[in-house]
Design a protein around this nucleic acid. Structure first.
Length: 372
RNA sequence: GGUGGGGUUCCCGAGUGGCCAAAGGGAACAGACUGUAAAUCUGUCGGCAUACGCCUUCGGAGGUUCAAAUCCUCCCCCCACCA
């Protein structure tokens, strides 16, 4: 009936949209948050955990899985879904973020990027085509084009040159895997840094390429919240209305609410999982730093309003103890909670859009999280 | 009983005349983390003071010296080996 890439909008509330995106491994109800599972695993959790908390789609990373265990090895095992025993959709990032985060150990050219392996220092080259080949081997449902994620503080000239190259790379990715040549779909990525006209230009160029969805990249790279929201509100509503919109690498609960209000459908971020491992937990009343001494003898649940396994079964005192003792269960229980919280937030967002009460929901979280 | 080694700030542990409130590590306390080089990183960590700085501290008590955690005397503990 539906085919990968089909996108149906069910309801809107101002710019916020409630929709369904079809993929080869099932439908995704948006707006959605996608837990990050860089190395073929959402750190500390099992696929069962993720299913329990109703994660609909997770991320994998081209660069990491290419280096280890190797995309061809994964392909020989039937692809990432089978290898990792994850039956729902997977989106793979292209390595574009590593162009940014591994700035010191990479070299860029029109042809592609040369990366140094962070594991053993060896040299590896990603062309846009290579990034797609790897994602084909991984068998993800949504492939991302290779882009240059430009960090904050780059001047206009550099950003402009970079965006033009990202467009050419996007075209090469699409040419390498034309629409409909398989059941994987491909998203283009808008760059342009913090120059609105360059964002517009990037989008205009990308519009000319037939992608199943569009992403906003290059945000949350060191700028202030104000600058980020400024660009977000400028560009997100301009992305094709009839296609999924993905805000890459964002963000805090408030960032996500802000993104949805600007018409974004998909989000991913390491924040809930990484912060969980580092002791910062997201709750309905704000952030909780579970390592604080004040929780040593606090027998209340982390978040009384949360229905997750962690909150239903353990006290703050115990969670603090596990964290202080560096017990492995700490990472697991904390990650479980944070991702449950994010996914539950998305569920509330979807419902609010359907009910036309998104504005109220956003205000509620803004009160709890104090404008970030 | 003898010989040798040692007692340092919450813990371990450097330091043998001034550059020492005393390295380093741990613990503790707090903060950061946004397409994961992150189970990571940063700051504080004797007391008082915004600060210049002042005060207290290196087993105990005395002493030498302009100056002592560092040298001397006695005492109290601990460890090793020998009897």
């Amino acid at each position: 009936m539906t085919k990968p890439g089909d996108f149906t909008i069910h309801a809107t509330d101002n710019l916020a949209r409630r929709a369904t995106l079809s993929t080869a491994h099932g439908d995704i109800q948006t707006p959605i948050f996608m837990p990050v599972g860089t190395q073929g695993t959402v750190k500390s959790l099992t696929p069962l955990d993720l299913e329990e908390m109703e994660a609909q789609i997770i991320l994998g990373n081209t660069y990491h899985l290419y280096l280890r265990p190797g995309d061809e090895l994964v392909a020989r095992r039937g692809g990432l879904h089978k290898f990792a025993n994850w039956k729902r959709p997977i989106l793979t990032d292209s390595g574009g973020f590593q162009v940014f985060s591994l700035e010191g150990i990479r070299k860029l050219s029109e042809e592609g990027v040369e990366f140094r392996s962070y594991i053993d220092g060896s040299k590896h080259f990603f062309s846009p085509e290579k990034a797609i080949d790897i994602q084909m081997n991984l068998g993800s449902d949504i492939m991302m084009v290779l882009d240059e994620c430009v960090g904050y503080g780059n001047d206009r000239a550099y950003t402009e040159k970079s965006l033009e190259m990202t467009t050419r790379w996007a075209q090469r990715c699409r040419d390498h895997y034309p629409k409909g040549s398989g059941d994987q779909i491909m998203f283009g990525i808008v760059q342009g840094g913090f120059y609105k006209d360059l964002r517009d230009r990037s989008l205009e160029q990308l519009r000319g390429i037939d992608f199943e969805g569009f992403a906003i990249g290059g945000l949350s790279v060191g700028e202030s919240t104000e600058e980020m929201y400024d660009i977000l509100h400028h560009i997100a509503p301009k992305l094709p209305h009839e296609k999924p919109r993905y805000l890459m690498g964002v963000g805090t609960p408030l960032d996500i609410l802000e993104g949805v209000s600007a018409g974004v459908d998909m989000f991913d971020c390491v924040l809930p999982s990484r912060n969980a491992r580092n002791g910062t937990l997201f709750t309905s009343t704000g952030k909780v730093n579970i390592k604080r001494a004040e929780y040593a003898e606090d027998d209340s649940p982390l978040d009384p309003n949360c229905g997750c396994y962690t909150c239903r079964n353990f006290t703050k005192a115990y969670l603090r103890h596990l964290y202080m003792a560096k017990e492995l269960l700490s990472y697991r229980l904390n990650t479980y909670h944070n991702l449950y919280f994010y996914l539950d937030l998305m569920k509330q967002i979807r419902k609010a859009i359907e009910d036309g009460t998104f504005r109220e929901l956003k205000a509620k979280y803004e009160a709890a999280y104090g404008q970030r």
